[in-house]
Design a protein around this nucleic acid. Structure first.
Lengths: 245, 245
DNA sequence: TCATACAACTTGTATTTACAAGTTGAAATT
DNA sequence: AATTTCAACTTGTAAATACAAGTTGTATGA
C-alpha cells in the first residue's frame, strides 16, 4: 500500500503547469500545432485542462523560455520552429540546406564507465568525483563528410542501463530526458580556433594545420551537481556552428 | 497639459515588477548585494516595496532569467556574478585572469550613417531597409594585445544623437540600454574557424593563415524589427571566447 | 552530549478576481 | 465605397489568499 501511495504521490506531485507544458511541447514537436500557427488561447486552455489562467500562463512562460512559442499581446501564442539545441550546437550548411536525412552519427567509443581524467578541464562537484564517469566519443557526418567530433563525459550517477542503450540515431539529450528525466538548464562554454593536429585532421579528413573550431562545454541540468562535459572539434570548412539564444 | 499627462502616463505605465527588477538589478551591479549573498525574502520585498508576492516573484523571475540570481526553495534568492554579456561574447584568458583594467577599446571607425551593404549577410526587416544603418568598427585589446575586431551595423531608427556619442569606455549595449531603452532579448549567431587574411592578420597582429574565430551575429531587441548585426574576428591564440547560457 | 523533533522561516504551486492594453473584424457612419 | 467606431476577442499586470515543500536553527528529549 505504501508503494502505491508513493507512486500516487509521485504522480500527483508533478505540477499542473508542468503537465500542460509537456502536453503542449509534445504536440508542437509532433506537428499537431504547426509553425506559425496560434496555440489555443489561454482561456481555452484553462477550460480544456481545467486550470486557472496563472497556471496556464506558467506553462506558456516555460514554452516561451524554451523557444517553442512566442507571445504577442492581443493576438496569441505563436508556435515557433522547435529549437535546434541548447546553446550553440546546431550545424548550418553554408552551401546547401541540411535535412536530418543527411545527418549521420558514428559512435567511435560506445559509452563506457571510466574514472575521470586527470587533469580535467572543469571543476567537478563532490558527488561527481565520488562516482565515476561515462565516456563516449562520436563522429558526425553531413552529406557523408565528417564535420563534428565530440568527446563526452557524464557522471555515472543513477543512470541504470545507460551503457547498454543504443545511441545511433537518438540524441544524447533525448535519451537523458526520456529515460532519466534529466533536462539541460544551461551551461558555459569556451570557444577557440585552433590548428588541426594529426588526430583531428585525420578524423575530420582535412589537412593538418587547417583551422578547426574547438569548444569546451559544461552543461548544467535539473539534477543538482550533475553536469555534462563535452569537448568538440568542428570542421568549419563547409559548415558553420549555429546557435540561438 | 496634454504633454504632462502623457509624461505622467509614461511614468505610470512602467509595470511595478519591472520597477522592482530595475532596482534590484542596479543594486546587484553596484555591489549593494554581494555575490553569493541572499536577497531579501519575497515577503520582505513585498513589505518594503508595497507589492504582493506574485508581483515580487515576477521581478525575481526576470532576474533569474537574466542570470543575476538563482533561487533555492526553502532558502532564498542567491546573488550571482553578474552575467558578462548575452550569448557568447566575453573574453576569458587562458593564462591570466582578465580584469576590466586590462581591457581597452580602440574605435577604428566612429559611428557613421550609411546605406546597408549589398549583399548583406542577414535578412533585414522592412523598417530596417527603409532607414539607413549606423556603421562602426572597433578593435579590442587585452593586455595591449589585439584580440577582438568587430564590425557593427545598427538600423538608424529613432536613435537621436547616436553618432555623436562617445563609445571609448562604454559598452555599446550600455549606451543602447541607458539612452534609448533598447534591451537585447536574444539572437542567433554563426561561428567558424577561418584563416587570417592580410587585413585580419595585420589588425590582430598574427601571422597570415593562423586560425581565427569568426562570428556573425544578429541580435534581437525589445524593439520590434530592430536588430543589431555584428561580424567578429577573434584572435584565440592566448584567449578564448566564453559564453554562459 | 548527542540526536530528534519541531517551529519558523524560505520559495513553490494554485485559485479567484479584476482591470489594462493590444488586435481584429464587423457594424455603423460618412 | 471608404472610413470610422466599437465590441469581442487576445495577452499583460496585479491584488489577496491558501497551502505545499524545502531549509535551518532551536528546543526538547534521550
Amino acid at each position: 500500500m505504501i508503494f502505491i501511495q508513493q507512486a500516487m504521490v509521485q504522480e500527483l506531485r508533478i505540477p499542473q503547469y508542468k503537465k500542460l507544458y509537456e502536453i503542449l511541447r509534445k504536440h508542437i514537436l509532433s506537428g499537431v500545432y504547426e509553425e506559425g500557427s496560434l496555440l489555443p488561447s489561454e482561456n481555452e486552455l484553462c477550460a480544456v485542462h481545467n486550470m486557472t489562467r496563472p497556471t496556464v500562463r506558467h506553462a506558456l512562460e516555460a514554452l516561451v523560455q524554451d523557444g517553442f512559442i512566442y507571445k504577442k499581446q492581443g493576438k496569441g501564442s505563436i508556435v515557433q520552429k522547435p529549437p535546434q539545441d541548447i546553446g550553440i550546437l546546431s550545424i548550418s550548411g553554408t552551401s546547401s540546406a541540411i535535412g536530418k536525412q543527411y545527418l549521420q552519427t558514428q559512435i567511435l567509443q560506445k559509452p563506457t564507465i571510466r574514472a575521470w581524467p586527470t587533469p580535467f578541464n572543469f571543476d567537478l562537484s563532490e558527488a561527481e568525483k565520488d562516482f565515476g564517469c561515462i565516456y563516449m566519443e562520436r563522429l558526425r557526418f553531413v552529406n557523408e563528410q565528417a564535420v563534428f567530433y565530440d568527446i563526452n563525459h557524464i557522471p555515472n550517477i543513477n543512470l541504470p542501463r545507460f551503457t547498454s542503450r543504443t545511441f545511433e540515431n537518438k540524441s544524447l539529450f533525448d535519451i537523458l530526458r526520456g529515460h532519466y528525466q534529466i533536462e539541460i538548464k544551461g551551461g558555459e562554454q569556451k570557444l577557440k580556433a585552433i590548428k588541426a593536429d594529426d588526430k583531428i585532421s585525420q578524423l575530420l579528413n582535412i589537412k593538418k594545420g587547417e583551422p578547426v573550431l574547438y569548444v569546451e562545454r559544461k552543461l548544467s541540468t535539473n539534477r543538482d551537481g550533475f553536469h555534462i562535459y563535452s569537448t568538440i572539434y568542428f570542421n568549419s570548412e563547409k559548415h558553420a556552428i549555429f546557435g540561438n539564444f
